[in-house]
Write a protein that binds this DNA or RNA. Structure first.
Lengths: 145, 145
DNA sequence: TAAAATATAGTTTATATTAGCAAGTAACGG
DNA sequence: CCGTTACTTGCTAATATAAACTATATTTTA
């Protein structure tokens, strides 16, 4: 017997978190979002921020990006788009190229599965790190810290 | 002044971990690998397994897959290939389709960056979960546990 | 509108993974 | 060979995130 669908509510906390995330073009961490939200709602807890980020992701209002580093970044733009990850400074940039939804069909036929969407990430060095302009570059993997 | 390149060694531990991972077609967790390695090297520590998985990834001998779930899976096949992630049972399947390296060039020109490689993951329901055969299916996101 | 059902918040605890450190071991120059 | 250096191990502590639990708030039902 199936369970009934979950009815999500747009609470004060959830709304503020969504607004903070949509208010930036960057891809912030959960902790950065927590600090921002605390300025208007000081008693919110970090656990609530994490929980709501997960719910907002399930509601398809935001995206979670977990590439490259040990922590997740969040993207207030839920529209499908690709990302570039700088392996030197860990920056994540949006890529303004069309999303090839036709692949989903190909993969579905090949596997006999249902494909809802796909993600693509490109890895390399961003312009700032190539030109040596970036100040927070991480050492390359073959260099010792 | 630049640091010298890191000289990795192929130690006993590192070799066994690599062999265990290459010995399976599945995409196991770090903990599963740890249990397997312990059968031939009982005194190895879990931290050493994690450290070597990271080093092997940097040596480009294996891949780390961190999609969908709260833990990473590892892939003994270092050759570029795409993956399918089942959102019902969390299985990760290999996709036998050509890798479109031409995108890397496109993105490099668009961003003015250097692109080394890309990854692509498809999300949906695997054949077993569609037919209701899978025994370890997770509840859908709109269902309450 | 009161009672029942359901979703959420805040807090505490658990989990997966990483980082730091002292001791061991392999590579290298003399 | 012997000492020096650099990489690795096992251990312990730290970190990011999820899960569990209770109390509160919101929605639905009667």
């Amino acid at each position: 017997m199936d369970k009934l669908p979950q009815l999500y509510r747009m609470t004060k906390q959830r709304k503020i978190i969504l607004d903070v995330l949509r208010g930036t073009k960057e891809h912030p961490t959960a902790d950065w979002i927590y600090e921002q939200v605390r300025q208007t709602m000081p008693r919110i807890s970090l656990g609530t921020v994490y929980r709501n980020l997960r719910v907002l992701k399930e509601m398809q209002d935001i995206q979670e990006l977990n590439y490259g580093s040990t922590y997740s970044l969040y993207d207030g733009n839920a529209e499908p788009h690709y990302h570039f990850v700088c392996q030197d400074c860990a920056a994540v940039l949006d890529i303004d190229l069309p999303v090839y939804t036709s692949y989903d069909q190909q993969v579905a036929e090949l596997l006999g599965s249902q494909v809802d969407f796909h993600r693509m990430e490109f890895y390399g060095s961003c312009p700032d790190c190539i030109s040596g302009k970036s100040t927070n570059s991480k050492p390359k993997m073959w260099e010792q810290l």
